[in-house]
């Protein structure tokens, strides 16, 4: 019986090694195709212009950012645990229902408000010299 336990242990070991290698590979592949590392910075845009940038790491407490433009109102809740549209006076409420911000930006189309993670901009060059 002892050898069977040992065999099992060995199988588990190699499966773990395999899993680790695969995970490392997948991660670097994703990093490669995503073109950059997701930053911890959240950007809030009104009509295409960045009106507020918040580094999530700098937050001790959740912050509510109020965006008022043309008589329209949006409130974005920004915290380390997540970013979401807390309140909006738009008719469709799609942005509020979208929930927590992920890779896809939260867009309040009627009010022209966008909430997104700032991505490290893709490099303007393919290589560097010097």
């Amino acid at each position: 019986m002892k050898s069977r336990t040992e065999l099992n242990r060995r199988i588990i070991f190699w499966v773990a090694v395999l899993a680790a290698v695969s995970v490392a590979g997948i991660c670097s592949y994703l990093l490669l195709v995503s073109g950059g590392v997701k930053s911890e910075t959240v950007q809030i845009l009104q009509n295409g212009e960045i009106i507020r940038e918040i580094d999530l790491r700098s937050l001790a407490e959740p912050v509510d950012v109020t965006v008022e433009a043309d008589g329209r109102l949006n409130v974005v809740r920004v915290s380390r645990d997540g970013v979401y549209m807390l309140e909006a006076d738009c008719p469709d409420q799609i942005c509020v229902r979208q929930g927590t911000l992920g890779a896809v930006p939260i867009v309040c189309l009627p009010n022209r408000v966008t909430v997104r993670f700032a991505y490290a901009p893709p490099s303007a060059v393919d290589a560097e010299l010097g």
Binding site: S28, L32, G35, P122, V125
Partner: peptide
């Protein structure tokens, strides 16, 4: 992005193998 950025997995290559 610069093509040379695929560092994490590649650098380990020779040792890992």
């Amino acid at each position: 992005m610069p093509l040379g950025r695929a560092k994490p997995s590649i650098a380990l290559c020779s040792q890992a193998r």
